[in-house]
Design a protein around this nucleic acid. Structure first.
Lengths: 222, 222
DNA sequence: CGCATCCGCTGTGTATGCACACGACCGCGA
DNA sequence: TCGCGGTCGTGTGCATACACAGCGGATGCG
């Protein structure tokens, strides 16, 4: 108990499983079953499920219980509408804050992006780790608890989209270049450029997903 | 029990109390005390508190327990940054959807706004009810579960700001005119105008709050 | 008189038991 | 054979009991 609360472990475990598509959309989550699987009792598990429902990762099944929420290409499109709203604004704010240090490091990292994209198998992990650093820098720069809360909540859904399509190494290279443009705009304090560069990046990212994703997938009840 | 779940009642009750400033920022919420007050046991109350924490309306107290989250003028400023990001985008999307019906009614309602502003005491309620209809129309028009979820979560915090300053009747009249501009832009399908009109409205609303609010208020620990 | 330590209290976190609602299955009757 | 009703099982929602950690006060020692 001193290590960590059981409800936190259950939440983290379930959330990771949903994001990694180990629990696929439409999967019914029964309390006793999941509690046994995770080695906790029903009480902390219920708290974990409640938090997942607040995140929108699970939804109440009208009849009974909870199911892992659907995640179709249509959902990705909607998610990218929200992402555009939040991230273009966040980039604009970050540029206005004039916090140079973390973005100078990011500029160097995105410039040397070939390093992390060398390994075919690990290219995605390296790129995603870099993006995580970028996201953290944005969060710190905007310094807005409301905006950051929505950004972080959104990123869980965004991570689900990663399993929906196969990103080519070429796309990752382009994405890194787009990030570099955003970082440089922020360093220049050019909020409009940062917002527009973000818009461009999101547009390309969504197009890439659409082009490489399977035709249809993941209805709630499949 | 068939009527409604105890945890839902507890959540709704606590949420309303926080939004209406009956529970002021910094108030420590103890489980047994609140459970007794609301006539439920600790289990559903804990679920309610968990949801409030997800909403950001309460925050974990480092030592122990939960407190009603702080809400200062600085927080209002941050909240309005998020609001600008979400609502300008939502207005743009609503204009693109071309769903005329609800907005035609709203155009008429905002034009006849003098009707609801007649009564000095009830002017705020009438205006807020009108805004609620506007918000609902936006939600329906954007048809985006992710964006709508963030909008609705944000509105709880926004409602807290209403107690922070005194809106004059003149300001309400102006606000209604600003809403009218947004509604007409949506009806015209002019997304950029809708976004910019929203931006103008939010700027004026925030200025009004700043001008009429007390100098400082509501630190977390007072 | 000051400080450290021990003890008890308070309150959270977790486990478990209980009640009820919904659905499925089975048996009976037409 | 088909329709209907009753009964049982499954699973959630709620209540309560228990364990433990943090904190404050009291007490004893220096």
């Amino acid at each position: 108990m001193s290590t960590e609360r059981a409800s936190d472990r259950a939440y983290a475990s379930l959330r990771a499983a949903i994001v990694d598509w180990e629990l696929e959309p439409g999967t019914v989550l029964q309390e006793v079953e999941q509690a046994a699987r995770l080695g906790v009792s029903r009480t902390p598990l219920r708290e974990a499920l409640s938090r997942l429902a607040s995140d929108g990762l699970v939804e109440p099944l009208p009849g009974r219980g909870l199911v892992v929420s659907a995640f179709s290409l249509e959902d990705v499109a909607q998610l990218y509408e929200l992402r555009a709203a939040l991230e273009t604004h966040a980039a604009r704010l970050a540029a206005a804050r004039h916090r140079a240090e973390p973005f100078q490091e990011l500029e160097a990292a995105f410039t040397r992006v070939a390093d992390v994209l060398d390994d075919d198998d690990e290219a995605h992990h390296g790129y995603y780790a870099l993006v995580a650093r970028f996201d953290a820098a944005i969060d710190e720069a905007v310094g807005n608890r409301f905006l950051v809360a929505d950004l972080q909540s959104m990123r869980a859904h965004l991570a689900r989209a990663r399993r929906l399509s196969r990103r080519s190494q070429q796309r990752l290279t382009s994405a890194a270049a787009e990030h570099l443009a955003i970082v440089r705009a922020i360093l220049d304090g050019d909020g409009e450029l940062a917002a527009n560069a973000t818009h461009v990046h999101l547009s390309n990212a969504l197009r890439s997903i659409r082009q490489t994703a399977p035709a249809a997938h993941a209805s709630e009840h499949d």
